Simulated assay, not measured.
Amino acid sequence: MEGLTSFLPFIAIFAVMYFFMIAPQMKRAKQEKKFASALKRGDKIITKSGMHGKILDLNDKDNSCVIETLAGKIKFDRSAISMEMSKKLNAPETKK
């Protein structure tokens, strides 16, 4: 019984770490993967580096997309697209 009680704090620490760190990170990764797979032509997006553009073409072979910007066309990996900023960009504007 003493052996179990000595490991109880470690088990509690692991449980807290799981519920506050690991589980939310796994949920976020799943959401980002779903967002990247739901992209379609014509979507206005913002990359994680801050570049604005519109999706011209999607390539499922190498998981990339071609984005049209003011400077021209650029090929990006789908994981380089910011989920939060792109959702804000495509959200309907509300009048104040």
Rank of each mutant, 00 (worst) to 15 (best):
A23S: 05
T5C: 10
P9A: 02
P92W: 05
E2Q: 09
M1Q: 09
P9D: 03
A91R: 14
F14H: 06
K61G: 15
F19H: 04
E84Y: 03
M1W: 14
M1E: 11
I46R: 03
K48Y: 11
F10Y: 04
L89D: 04
A36H: 10
I22A: 02
M17E: 03
N59A: 08
A36N: 14
T47G: 13
T5V: 07
K87S: 05
E32A: 02
A29P: 03
S86C: 08
K27D: 00
N59V: 09
R78S: 00
N59W: 02
K96H: 08
S6G: 06
S82K: 03
C65V: 13
K44T: 04
M83L: 06
K27V: 00
K95T: 07
S6C: 09
L8I: 06
A29Y: 15
I67V: 15
A12P: 01
Q25A: 07
N59R: 08
D77N: 10
S86E: 06
K75N: 15
K61W: 08
A23M: 12
I55G: 13
F19C: 00
G72T: 04
M83C: 05
S6D: 05
Y18Q: 00
M85T: 11
G72N: 13
F10M: 06
M85Q: 13
G72F: 05
D57K: 10
I22Y: 14
I67F: 11
M83P: 02
H52M: 15
A29K: 12
A12I: 07
I22P: 01
N63Y: 15
S6F: 13
I45V: 15
Q31T: 00
K95Y: 09
F20P: 00
T47Y: 09
A71Y: 07
L8W: 03
T69P: 04
D43H: 01
A71L: 12
A12G: 03
K27G: 00
P24T: 01
K96D: 15
L4M: 09
